[in-house]
Design a protein around this nucleic acid. Structure first.
Length: 555
DNA sequence: TGCTCTGCTG
């Protein structure tokens, strides 16, 4: 029996305001609040500003939907300052800057109320998060006129605002002018300097703080992590008197971004109360560092804790699955995503779903999801093209690239890598050369070693072995082994013994331990009936203790 | 009379 049914039985006798208040305070969801509402009406408390403020406050905490709290507010004939401030806060948290200012302007013309020190902080915070410098300055002017500039909350939010907008001088002016400062004001100032790119001044302030709390330490650690200075970050982490989940997560993420998953994992295991963000930092770290199996293992471990996965974690999981190309897992994740409350139209989720299905070989599903996307960007196009390319559908990839251009999207360096690879896999020589040409001449993009490798492959396949060889020797960037390997493959295809020997020599210099290079050369000798050389190559492979790793696939 | 505001993590 729910909490409310007990009271509903005695509905004829209205509850006292105090009982309604205690009911309100036990509410955990917007649903339960809706069940308390009739009691407020029954008691005739609809105009009770205190109760309604509490009610609206809870609505805002539980849901981002403002229509319900707004309709309650509109029924109040003369809202007091508490009610106005609560409504402003709700709009600041859940709506646009324009709408927040709209509520604020209504408040300013309302009778009997004047904006006070409680009104401004949420509005300034909203400006800070939107980097709305002009609007924030207007508020600052009003704050000075209202005389609320001495309040520590108002001052702290102004410091944060100017800091986020990189107006560090203004932030410092507010900071220096404050009659009373607390840890929040100091931390906001420190973060401002870190964000501005002045870690020395940040550290200077941090060292000068009379009283630091865990957030001030975390801010300083996060600053060092963002600068890539893991040593200093770890030093502070070890030095701080007490640590919370944020401290650990900041360090874990720092190690993960630096590719040091071992240290990340070690700290993660030390963290007693693992929250969703710490799980996410570790799982995404594994996924981004090419350790998909570990990412998936950690995901399964998380399922046994009380933490429920959110969209960040699901995107990492899908990325890990893509790397493995595991179709079964992809199907499971896909169906779970559809049965869940995740908003699949959100770009990054939709893109991850397309990418996972494409890389795992479910092209039909990927294609459906791709077409259903509300907007398609370069990333989602690249996922589809790469999927088509992996599965040998080069012509379709080319068609998709052209469609992307027609949609007005401008291809970047990665998009060209994808389409050139697709062309080279599918042997689309003409198309590939055309794309390479347009990348350099139309889009003025500097070709990378990968782009050159694709071009070498394309030239080689079409029999232009000499051109490809000259390209490799004259290109402005240092060719990687893949480019030489592509040419060696082409030499084998076109039975060019002389060039094959030369290319293999260069390649073996670059990668003396890769058995494939020796095998390719021995294949070329075999095709030319030079059996003595074939056996010499095999002897070399044995003598050097090399073994060809057999190709394998997860699909 | 009570209730409303600020800084650090994926």
């Amino acid at each position: 029996m729910s909490l409310f049914c007990r009271y509903s039985c005695t509905f004829s006798r209205p509850l006292s305001s105090a009982s309604i208040l205690s009911l309100l305070r036990r509410c955990k969801t917007i649903r339960s609040l809706e069940q308390v509402h009739p009691h407020i009406i029954h008691k005739g408390c609809e105009q009770d500003a205190f109760l309604i403020t509490e009610f609206i406050s809870l609505c805002i905490a539980f849901s981002s939907n403002l229509s319900y709290p707004t309709s309650l507010f509109e029924r109040i004939t003369q809202p007091n300052i508490y009610l106005w401030n609560t409504l402003v806060k709700g709009y600041c948290r859940h709506s646009s800057l324009t709408n927040s200012f709209w509520v604020f302007s209504r408040m300013k013309v309302a009778l009997d109320v004047t904006p006070d020190k409680y009104t401004f902080p949420p509005l300034i915070k909203n400006c800070a998060n939107s980097l709305a410098l002009r609007e924030g300055r207007v508020l600052h002017g009003l704050i000075l006129r209202c005389g609320t500039d001495c309040d520590v909350f108002v001052g702290s939010s102004l410091i944060d605002f100017y800091g986020k907008c990189k107006e560090i001088q203004c932030a410092r002016q507010v900071f220096d002018g404050m009659p009373v400062r607390n840890e929040v004001s100091w931390t906001a100032m420190i973060v401002g300097y870190l964000n501005y790119g002045d870690p020395a001044e940040a550290k200077n302030l941090f060292d000068g703080m009379a009283k630091r709390n865990v957030a001030s330490w975390n801010a300083m650690i996060s600053g060092f992590v963002k600068l890539g200075n893991l040593k200093s970050a770890r030093h502070l982490f070890d030095e701080m008197p007490e640590r919370n989940a944020v401290s650990y997560t900041t360090m874990i993420d720092g190690y993960a971004k630096a590719g040091d998953m071992e240290s990340a994992r070690m700290l993660f295991e030390q963290l007693v109360e693992k929250d969703i963000i710490s799980w996410s930092a570790l799982i995404s770290g594994y996924a981004q560092n090419g350790q998909p199996t570990e990412a998936i293992q950690m995901f399964y471990r998380m399922q046994f804790s009380s933490v429920k996965p959110d969209e960040f974690i699901m995107v990492s999981l899908m990325s890990a699955c893509s790397q493995l190309g595991c179709l079964e897992l992809a199907k499971t994740i896909d169906s779970n995503m559809h049965g869940s409350s995740f908003d699949l139209r959100r770009v990054h989720i939709a893109a991850a779903l397309v990418d996972m299905n494409a890389k795992c070989g479910n092209m039909d599903r990927a294609s459906t999801l791709f077409e259903e996307m509300p907007t398609r960007d370069i990333v989602s196009y690249c996922s589809m093209m790469q999927g088509l390319s992996i599965h040998g559908r080069g012509l379709q990839a080319v068609a998709l690239f052209d469609r992307m251009l027609k949609e007005g999207l401008v291809p970047d360096s990665i998009a060209f890598t994808v389409i050139l690879t697709a062309c080279s896999h599918a042997g689309l020589v003409e198309e590939g050369c055309r794309y390479f040409d347009s990348m350099v001449n139309e889009y003025s993009l500097e070709p990378s070693p990968e782009h050159y490798a694709c071009l070498v492959d394309l030239l080689g396949r079409s029999g232009k072995l000499k051109t490809a060889y000259e390209l490799l020797n004259s290109m402005p960037v240092k060719p990687h082994a893949g480019a030489w390997g592509a040419l060696l493959g082409a030499c084998k295809l076109h039975c060019d013994l002389e060039l094959g020997e030369e290319v293999a020599r260069r390649l073996i210099e670059l990668e003396p331990l890769n058995a494939c290079n020796y095998v390719l050369l021995s294949d070329i000798y075999a095709a030319a009936n030079k059996w003595l050389d074939v056996s010499l190559m095999r002897l070399q492979i044995r003598e050097r203790g090399l073994r060809k790793v057999p190709g394998r696939s997860w699909v």
